[in-house]
């Protein structure tokens, strides 16, 4: 049974790689030497196309964009707000589909991504490209019609940044890929703010900076305790190109400027005592966690199973969620006239 499963798995993988290659190059699959039932794209269900949109990433995008929109001082009609958030989510999904189209070759190599729709042979790469481009156009145009040109322009730039700047230019070129690429994930609250106000302000820039500065320590804390196969796929990761000591330095190095950014947001018009209280506690804990990760070496980390690194990564998840949750709480308090802002 095991032998059969292994053989099937191997055939599926080869077939998937063939599909990815042929799709990427735009050729037909006439060169496939395997059984056509294996090499041909399977009957993709709606769920497979939905998986192209990276729904888990979309959920974070939706949450941060919604907070950006609700925290803004200008009220937006609920239906327009709904359409705007939908457009931002679809735009994020479209960039995910474009990313999967471009990265189909390395997705097929890595264990974590080998089951994605393109390497799994369910969706042809060209289909993902078409879906990504169509949804990008749909999201940007509809956001422009529903709201304003700045929000639509920022969404278009975000899609371009993730699909082209990050996926095509940076991801395979530099271990700083996630730092600069993290900007794509930082734009949604700025877009949400632009939907309401039609502009960019200190508040939206700080929300952007909060996610931007948070991404490196969040990601590298994970990279320290999870053994990835990015190296096999030719993607440079800091842990492998510069070593784990340098990665620890970078975790602390990016945490230090993150703290004033997070706290500074509390002194703007969208902050307040609730946000500041939450932020102070979270930043003290995050700073201590990053310090703990920085001050020890691999021997100590292996001895306790990377406990500090895992703790910092878990904290980073709640760190971002609670910061934006606190901004949302401040917005709700302001809405009901309960906000106490001494500044």
């Amino acid at each position: 049974m095991t032998g059969f499963r292994d053989a099937t798995g191997a055939m599926n993988f080869t077939g998937a790689a063939t599909v990815a290659r042929t799709g990427m190059n735009g050729h037909t699959m006439s060169d496939a030497s395997l059984d056509s039932a294996v090499t041909a794209p399977g009957e993709a269900g709606l769920g497979d196309y939905f998986a192209l949109l990276k729904p888990r990433v979309m959920s974070l995008v939706v949450f941060t964009a919604l907070v950006g929109l609700l925290a803004a001082p200008v009220p937006v009609h609920p239906f327009v707000a709904f359409v705007a958030i939908l457009c931002i989510a679809v735009g994020a999904g479209a960039s995910g589909a474009l990313n999967m189209w471009w990265d189909a070759d390395i997705d097929a190599v890595m264990r974590r991504t080998a089951k994605r729709p393109i390497p799994a042979g369910k969706v042809a790469a060209a289909e993902a490209l078409g879906l990504g481009l169509a949804l990008s156009g749909f999201a940007v145009v509809l956001l422009f019609l529903a709201t304003n040109w700045l929000a639509a322009g920022l969404l278009a730039f975000t899609i371009f940044f993730y699909a082209v700047v990050y996926s095509m230019w940076l991801k395979r070129a530099t271990p700083q890929n996630i730092v600069i690429g993290g900007a794509a994930g930082a734009f949604p609250p700025m877009i949400g703010w632009a939907v309401a106000t039609g502009g960019v302000s200190v508040e939206s820039a700080l929300m952007f900076a909060l996610i931007f500065m948070w991404t490196p320590p969040h990601f590298w804390a994970l990279a320290l305790f999870v053994r990835t196969d990015y190296g096999d796929a030719g993607v440079p990761m800091l842990t492998e190109t510069h070593g784990r000591r340098v990665t620890r330095n970078h975790v602390l190095g990016y945490t230090l400027p993150l703290v004033p950014v997070a706290l500074g947001l509390g002194f703007t018009s969208i902050g307040g005592p609730v946000y500041l209280a939450v932020s102070v506690v979270l930043n003290i804990r995050f700073l201590l966690g990053a310090w703990a990760v920085w001050r020890r070496d691999e021997t100590q980390a292996e001895a306790d199973g990377y406990a500090s690194e895992k703790r910092l990564f878990r904290l980073s998840l709640s760190y971002l969620f609670l910061h934006f949750g606190a901004l949302l709480a401040e917005a709700v308090l302001r809405f009901y006239g309960l906000s106490v802002m001494p500044w």
Partner: peptide, 13 residues
């Protein structure tokens, strides 16, 4: 439905 709803909201606004 979205386009219709958006049209209604825009006209009423």
């Amino acid at each position: 439905a979205i386009i219709f709803g958006l049209t209604v909201v825009k006209v009423l606004s």
